[in-house]
């Protein structure tokens, strides 16, 4: 599903953020990515969700060597990846419904199909009564659930979440990670970045641990 081999990354002419990263994520797996603030978690995720290209090494996603993949081919690959961003990155001028519908609209799905799917998914994340609310009227927990709904509406093969529990309390954090487990059970490969070790210990998944830009792979956290 995702294979990194000897990957290094730097932004423009800045210092190298990631050094010699190698790992392999099997399809249908559930991984945590952890590390201290500034360890390079977001940079590693950006490589995985195809926001950046590696400076060195090979990144393969869905079997495609991203270094040799044309820009034109990236949108189709990105549509197979759902991303929950750290700061939600919702579009403030759009309603909850339109935020979630965005990735389907981009993919050219018909409006009647979009309408049905969006309503169903927002009910699933407990926001069935907030379809027409705008993000500015939602709590952080609700925004997070909208961001999750947007990430999974296209039934991605790979779900990447960057600190999805960062702005919610522990109980809600656990609920979000259980939600990801549900998706994992139906075949979605899940990668969740978190620095919350207490939360990690409640789950039994493999952990990718980043320290100063280098990676260590641990077995299940508990």
């Amino acid at each position: 599903m995702v294979r990194f081999q000897g990957v290094a990354m730097r932004y423009a002419s800045g210092p190298e953020i990631l050094h010699d990263i190698s790992f392999n994520l099997e399809a249908g797996s559930y991984h945590f990515l952890t590390g201290a603030s500034g360890a390079g978690k977001t940079s590693l995720l950006r490589l995985m969700y195809l926001a950046n290209r590696a400076t060195r090494g090979t990144v393969k996603v869905f079997g495609h060597d991203i270094g040799n993949t044309s820009r034109r081919a990236l949108p189709a690959l990105r549509r197979r990846i759902g991303v929950v961003f750290q700061e939600f990155r919702l579009l403030d001028h759009l309603s909850t419904r339109d935020n979630v519908a965005l990735s389907l609209r981009i993919a050219g799905v018909k409006e009647d199909v979009i309408r049905a799917h969006v309503a169903e998914l927002l009910s699933w994340v407990g926001l069935g009564d907030k379809l027409d609310s705008t993000p500015s009227t939602l709590s952080d927990g609700e925004k997070q659930r909208v961001a999750i709904a947007r990430a999974v509406i296209g039934r991605p093969s790979l779900l990447i979440a960057d600190e999805p529990t960062g702005s919610v309390d522990e109980a809600q954090g656990v609920r979000i990670l259980r939600l990801f487990e549900e998706l994992n059970r139906i075949g979605t490969t899940v990668v969740v970045a978190t620095h919350d070790q207490r939360l990690l210990s409640k789950f039994n998944h493999r952990v990718l641990r980043l320290e100063n830009g280098t990676l260590r792979i641990d077995g299940p956290a508990s």
């Binding site: 969700y49 195809l50 926001a51 990236l74 949108p75 189709a76 990105r78 549509r79 991303v83 961003f85 990155r89 579009l91 965005l102 990735s103 981009i106 993919a107 947007r150 296209g154």
Partner: peptide, 11 residues
């Protein structure tokens, strides 16, 4: 926002 749209698969 354009980057976001790219990341969710926009051409």
């Amino acid at each position: 926002l354009i980057e976001l749209m790219h990341l969710i698969g926009s051409r």
